[in-house]
Amino acid sequence: MKITKSLSLAMTVALPALLASSLSLAEDFPVRPITEIVPYPAGGSTDLSGRAFAEALSDYFGVNVVADNRSGGGGSVGISALARARSDGYTIGVAPVGTIANQPHMHRTPYSAESFDYLCQFYYGSEVLVVKPDSPFSTLEEVIDYAKAHPGKLSFGTPGPGTLPHLDMLRLQQITGIELTHVPFAGDGPGLTALMGGHVDLYMALPNTVTDRNLDAVAIFSEEPMASLPGIKTVKAQGYDMTASVSGGLVAPKGLPSAIKQKLVEGCEQATKSEELKTVLGRVGFEARYLGPDEFRQLVEQTSEVNGRLIKEVIKKDGSR
């Protein structure tokens, strides 16, 4: 008797839920947990930002948004898993602009910048050109003068070939007409340690590298100087028309039903306003900066075009720099 009673109770609870989930319409979205793929390992700045954003989305939608790390291949493993996922809105992912725009030009990937529906950009960080401790350089001009007199003598480290900092350094060399030697590392960890040990001369990093690690920078690649980095001039103020940043946002596999996309875009915009998100982003060196779906897509497409050309002209022609 007891068993039948609890069974029937379970049925009355479970049946409508089952029906609801099978018949769920776009208006009800979301009715179950959402998976947010993070294409980098746990603990890094992309992961921490992605997790904080998942929290903010959870608060907005009222369902769990679970961060799921799928790392490997410079982010391309996670992004391909995302591209292959069902486009029902229940699998979304954090897409760093570099991974989604550069990797398809570096080698064959099962995705391209066109494989996704763009929801929003939520994080942004200006790049900063950091110098090794006791470096003789304090302005960009000094670096450029020295490099012009001694081509290939100065070295710069990057978190890997084909990453955004690498391509931005290639752009800087083209714009200023200097020649530097590229030393790729397996991520920022080993790379920044090598800079601190004086094994490389320059490194393209995030602003918090300067404040947290007591390093000096010669230029910041943003439009305006940053209040947290007093005395460090922008590249523009030092006479070269160039900006560079690391940013990323939320994307979904292409082909979302428009009503669901609309809801995700709305959630994305609201989540970017979360105070907790802003705190976490600040701690890892980013800031919350919202771009709508179209602007974010344009940013990725534009980066893909510029960097695709650079990769073809420089990296694929001469792998060493």
């Binding site: 570096m106 070939p161 790729p184 060493s320």
Partner: peptide, 10 residues
Amino acid sequence: VGQDPVTGYL
């Protein structure tokens, strides 16, 4: 096997 750590080639 995989990405060349210096050139990025596969």
